[in-house]
Design a protein around this nucleic acid. Sequence first.
RNA 1: GGGAGAUUAGCUCAGUCUGGCAGAGCACUUGCUCGACACGCAAGGGGUCACAAGUUCAAAUCUUGUAUCUCCCACCA
Length: 862
Amino acid sequence: MQNETYEPLRIEKKWQENWISQNKFLPKESEKVFSIVIPPPNVTGSLHMGHALEHSIIDVITRIKRFQGYKTLWLPGTDHAGIITQLLVEKNLEKDGISKYDLGRENFLNKVWDWKEESGNTITTQMKTLGMSCDWSRERFTMDEGLSEAVKKVFIELYEKGLVYKGSRMVNWDIKLQSAVSDLEVSSTNEKGKLWTIKYSVDDTFIEIATTRPETLLGDTAIAVNPNDERYKHLVGRKALVPIVNREVEIVADDYVDQDFGSGCVKITPAHDFNDYEIGIRHNLESIQCIGFDGNIVNEEFIPKELRGLERFEARKAIIKQLTDQNKLSNIEDYDLQIPRGDRSKTILEPMVSEQWFVKTKQLAEKAIQVVESEEIKFVPKNWEKTYFEWMYNIQDWCISRQQWWGHRIPAWYDNNGKIYVGLNEVEIRKSNKIDEDTILYQDEDVLDTWFSSALWPFSTLGWPDKTKDLEEFYPTSLLVTGFDIIFFWVARMIMMGMFSMESIPFKDILIHGLVRDSQGRKMSKSLGNTLDPLELSEKHGADALRLSLIEKANPGQDVPFDEEWTIASKKFGNKVWNAAKFVHLYSDEEFSEEVIEVNSPENIWILHTFNSTLTQFNESIENYKISDAYKLLYNILWSEQFDWYFEFAKTLISKSTHSKETKYVLRKIFLESLKLLNPAMPHLTEEIWSSFKKTYLIDEEWPVEISITDSESNQIEQLKELISQIRNFRTNYKISNKIILEIYITGNLPDWFLVQLQEIAKVKVINSKNSNSSSKIVFSALNISLEINAEEYIDIDFELTRLNKKINELEKSRNISEQRLQNVNFINNANQELIDKEKNNLENLTEEIELIKATIKNLTI
RNA sequence: GGGAGAUUAGCUCAGUCUGGCAGAGCACUUGCUCGACACGCAAGGGGUCACAAGUUCAAAUCUUGUAUCUCCCACCA
């Protein structure tokens, strides 16, 4: 690699293929097990920044666990994503003017499978491009045979325990999808609307009723007032006349009504409003459907002819016109309202009463709450627990049937009398229920909510319901990494289903990551045009650079602001590491031996200590899933301590000391150990570099442990660094070229190695005597070490005096604070002794430094 | 209406749990072809820690309140 430059693309593909062909991502036998299942992306989707972030986090953790000797499984797979995929295929067919009904169910499903086969590999291929270390031999799909069996099995078990039921209830109906959707799939948006006040006749007078949806009056079956409302008390029990349909309805009293809103009277349409539905039940009201499942006004006798079949919002206009004409409209005002729209279709949802399948959630939720309360399952960060509990305590039954074709068909059959049979298949059902061939059975047309199968993912992917070895070994999984947006959709339901089917938690920790945003903190969205394509970024700067740039910002729960700049910076870091490797080769290849060598020189001892403390902090951060902290630390330590300071020290040691052999050993040792820490974030680069040093695979290595050092660390290296910086600063200020060797006077005894490094790195010549001949002296000092230089030939005295005075000012400020603190009786009495000693020491140092500078000033002004 | 989070350098964020002289990266300024690296090296500039009051010898950090922003959840017709 000595003559090569860092080209990520060249090495990345090579290693991806190599690792997979050498089975490096398969779990290796060990007592300790670490398993993680991927949050399955949509099978027809392609990778976006959110995936790239999530997968990078998972891959880093997985690779670390693999290093740490765990039997490590990262199980990949995809989700059939019922509604989205079906919509996509439908849209595609539309281009050729074909509807799904033209094809029929079976042919349409064949088309979807074709589509899945065609585009299903896109996302997994893209994951491979980013170097994700999944066990591809265990890849699963929510609609593959095994998982479909699992879905049926769970449905049947739930049904048999009475936890799944079919019922006629009010649900959110999506007119475009022609399907029910669950509460979670509804997003309320603030929109401008109107509030109409309509007069309803009561005998020869009338009452006023405000509504935002006048078309529903066709289905009104009551008027409600608050029981305490003095204005209307006398009307309760009397009849009002619904305009247009001229239906007589009762005026009822119900607490739900807010006296202070509108007129204090509410029209009640049990068939088309969630609250009205409840009131309808309380008051035993008739439920009259006036809007059909197609979104049009129903074609019924009670509806005036001219309104029948009208689209719901057209009907609204027509009704407003009729009311106006009949002088029944007393007020119209602009009104901000919450409009429920379907997440997928974006159409306005219609509450409808219909027959659907539901999961009874109360009982399932209890266990799911308990395991989080007892911290068997931990949210990271912890505060997401609250969100989880909040939802769990108020959980509603889950509507799981969808009037769609693409998905797991509900394993329920009906005979001609409408009797329900639930079972694995028709044959099975006939057998167990003793139904002869003459009786015709129909399977339920509906499919299950996609999230139903996702809820089983942690165990269905491992082979359940069979008692497989994988299931036994890898369940419960160790960790779930996911976004907060699907805590309810997915996380909560996995816990419920895990507890139900496995009687055990599905995962131990839940690491919640944030959203990838743009550099200004805005959500990435197509409409804003601020999206970035992870594959494009990886092609431009390398997968390793992309991964590191995401990882560096990914602390638990935090959003990840992102800019291509970050990836470019990571690429530069990769380049730095690449060149550092070349440096290590250049300085250590010759005369290098693998044997462990005793380390004596302070510079080497220092870098080993630095490595050890970095390792400790790094491990601690990772334990707490603070991946960002860990990698930021590594980035800084490698770049500034190892590659800058230590490499300079090493040059001197190798060429100018008797520690050459030991230094070669340390130089290579800490570099290679550091590569292991970096590997999970930048696997390709580090594997490539490793292969230039060793014949083994880096991925097969063990995680570093602290390097044992007999000597304790001294602070002399820090003093040396400080002095070098000061001398460099002096050069910069006076534009003294690096080529000029400055003469430095020193008295007292500093060790030889110290002086050698000082001379080499600061480009000075040390003269070990008192400086007697000069009037203009500059003093450099670090703690108890001070050096002098004859300065008259370089310096501008005024400039230097200004600079030194400024410095004295700063130091005196600090000294004053320190003095005041020490003179403060309360401080002395209250603070602990250690702190007081530290403060005294600090004051001493400051005083000494100030004296030195004062002496320098005196010298300069003579 | 209920809940969660945020506010520290131009930008993105550490630091707050456990009080003790404000940190990093990027960006910026200046100098530098010194054999790993100009995707670099070196030296710099830059902050009333949102605001207010309190506790304390001492507050970015603890307490209370205020302001602004983000995000969830919720049926006011």
